[in-house]
């Protein structure tokens, strides 16, 4: 990065573009989470199950995010791995009220972390323990334990309890992710 562009970057004139991948099982609230990050006027009122994937853009702290909102349906989960290579961060959305499928979440997370495009990179992973408002929801600590997040040594990770409908907890999580990506990207350049 040249001196001018670095200067421009700090001034916020030129924004750094980063790609984040939003994954998670179907009905966990990925599209709702992404929808909340968008500008007020761009938001959609009705969220329908994503087919394939959708690309959304939003900004946070002078970082232009391109979010690849992947479909979580079983038959589309094969698509995830094609986007691992170019992403700078991963947002993993977990439905904390779905106790039955916590094993499936763990299975998908293990597949993701063992993927050759992921396992040797220091990619920040942000977990949203979504649907915290549900009465039978598990706490973020329980989900972290259930998914065995303490065993992830080589990647920075963070778990945030969230409610994507109201936006509760989302900002905190994305700020952490922005900080992590900024560190990684700046260290690289």
């Amino acid at each position: 990065m040249g001196l001018f562009s670095k200067f421009a970057f700090f001034l916020g004139v030129r924004k750094k573009e980063v790609n984040v991948l939003v994954v998670g099982l179907n009905n966990s609230g990925k599209s709702t989470v992404v929808n909340h990050f968008k500008n007020e006027e761009e938001r959609v009122t009705e969220i329908v199950p994503t087919v394939g994937f959708s690309v959304e853009k939003f900004q946070n702290q002078n970082l232009a995010f391109t979010a690849f909102d992947m479909s979580g349906h079983g038959r589309y989960r094969d698509l995830w791995e094609h986007y691992y290579k170019d992403c700078h961060g991963i947002i993993f959305v977990v439905d904390s009220s779905d106790r039955l499928r916590l094993v499936v979440v763990k299975e998908e997370l293990d597949l993701l972390l063992q993927h050759p495009d992921i396992c040797n990179r220091k990619i920040p992973v942000l977990f949203f323990a979504n649907k915290m408002d549900c009465k039978d929801a598990l706490s973020s600590v329980k989900i972290a334990a259930g998914l065995g997040l303490d065993k992830i040594m080589d990647k920075p990770w963070h778990i945030a309890a969230s409610n994507a409908l109201t936006g509760e907890g989302l900002q905190e999580g994305v700020e952490w992710l922005t900080q992590q990506i900024r560190d990684v990207v700046l260290n690289k350049s």
Partner: peptide, 8 residues
């Protein structure tokens, strides 16, 4: 199908 999961 049970809950959201198809193959239970």
């Amino acid at each position: 199908q049970l809950g959201q999961e198809e193959h239970v």
